[in-house]
Simulated assay, not measured.
Amino acid sequence: MKSSLRAYLLSIVVACSVITGCAQDSKVTQADMREQIGTELGSVEKVTVMSTDGQEVSLELPEFLKELQNQGKDLQLSRDPLKQDEVRFTLVLYRKQLAPLVVSVGEKASQFGENTYRGTGAITFYQWVHRLTGKGLLPRNSENILLSADDLSQSRVLEESEKTFIQSVLQKAVPESDHTVNQHPLYPNYKLRINSSDRPIDITILTPTLITIPFGRDQHFYHVDGQMFSTLTEYLLPREKEAPSIEKLFKATKIRVEATGDMRVDNLDLDVTQSTVEQGIAHQAVRLLKTGVQLVDRPQQEIGPEEYRIHFRIGDNDQTVIFYARHFRINDKWYAHNQVQKAIWKLLEHTQK
């Protein structure tokens, strides 16, 4: 059953136990409640969001209070408490000379005190706070910036002029409303570690125009000027050199899975050039292969039956990876692995859905 009065109170973050007590008094008028709520919110001097791993981001107080009145619709008081693994972050309202108000927020539920609220309003509430948090995450200043390219095993600290350029791009970043973007980073997997007086920020460049910043169990995505990616290739240039067999697979334009053995897989074709999503999946598959340990010779122990094959098309030729239970082979090179064939198939099979 909907709890409209309590839902109304959650619209101002279920402000405090005093208000909750007032809500239970049927003689209290709507005007009385609004006055009480206005008094409580007037004491708020800072609003922050705390991630599950201890990061804290300040929200813009005027914007928060202005938009708060639009929250709290279509909520249901739930008997099902918010579980700890459902919590994505914690909203904290600091008040003058009063204890802070604390709300645990999940994707589909929020909890204040002993009350848990679900319904479409709880989903909207999460998305709203998520959006405000994303704006607060973007760095306003930096002491230094470390650029790395994981696929190249290279990194360097940016010079002052380079740092200024990166900051100017990030200041214009536009948050992506969809927080479930399915995009793996493209080669060479550029990352920025921004150290500031506030807190360190880790940014992964997913595509030339899309970046992501982690915040506890959440991921925040932003659209940026594509010039940043092309400039990063100048800062850390992917140099042409004689690469190991696995490294060459980053250049594949097509991937074909062939069900040749015991593992239950389907024949599958992936056009890597179709979009950045397919390209990112292909590059992630290569990164999984790189977790294998190259052996000097063919394994001495029984390798078991073949499980399946993947063919990477590079130019006019195919590079074939043959999987076994604990090993895989590329040409005459053998690698030991721990279930990487299952991880790669799980990654690839979603492209057919």
Rank of each mutant, 00 (worst) to 15 (best):
A259H: 04
L10Y: 08
H311S: 08
L137R: 04
G38D: 10
S155N: 04
S110Y: 14
T20L: 15
T180E: 12
S110T: 11
S104K: 10
F125C: 14
Q301L: 12
R199D: 12
V92W: 00
E67N: 12
L249C: 06
R313Q: 15
E63N: 05
L270S: 10
H311C: 04
N144G: 04
L295N: 09
A282T: 09
D262L: 13
E306Y: 10
G134T: 11
R256Y: 00
Q111H: 08
A252C: 15
E107D: 12
E278A: 10
E107A: 13
R199P: 09
I281L: 03
L210Y: 03
E349F: 06
Y8M: 02
S153I: 09
L5M: 07
S78H: 09
L170P: 02
N141K: 14
L268W: 14
G38W: 15
K191I: 04
S148P: 02
R313S: 07
G280I: 08
M263A: 15
Q167F: 10
H223P: 00
T320R: 01
L41V: 14
Y190A: 09
F64C: 03
K342F: 11
N115G: 07
H327D: 06
D202R: 14
G72P: 00
D80T: 12
M1C: 06
L75C: 12
L147K: 05
S275D: 15
K27G: 06
T204R: 13
F312H: 03
S155K: 12
G261W: 03
G292I: 00
Q294S: 01
Y335G: 11
D332A: 00
S177N: 14
S245L: 12
F64Y: 14
E107W: 04
E60D: 10
Q341D: 02
P62V: 14
Q97E: 15
I194T: 08
V44Y: 00
D332L: 01
E242Q: 15
L206C: 05
M33C: 13
S245G: 14
Q97W: 07
Q171G: 11
T48M: 13
A99Y: 10
D262N: 11
H327C: 00
Q167I: 03
H283N: 12
F125T: 13
R156A: 11
I123H: 09
Q352A: 11
V49G: 12
V265N: 10
L146T: 10
L232K: 06
Y222T: 15
K135H: 13
Q294H: 05
G106A: 10
Y308N: 02
A243Y: 05
F229K: 05
P238W: 01
G315E: 08
L158D: 02
T52N: 03
V340C: 00
F323I: 04
Q111F: 09
Q341R: 02
D318S: 05
L75H: 04
E176P: 02
V293M: 06
K172G: 04
S177D: 06
Q352L: 01
I303H: 01
V321S: 02
R217W: 06
L268P: 05
L236H: 09
Q183R: 13
G226C: 13
K342D: 05
A259K: 15
E240R: 12
T253F: 03
E307K: 05
T209S: 01
Y187T: 07
V321N: 06
N144C: 06
V18Q: 15
V293Q: 07
L101P: 01
H337W: 02
K248L: 14
K108F: 13
N338L: 05
T351K: 06
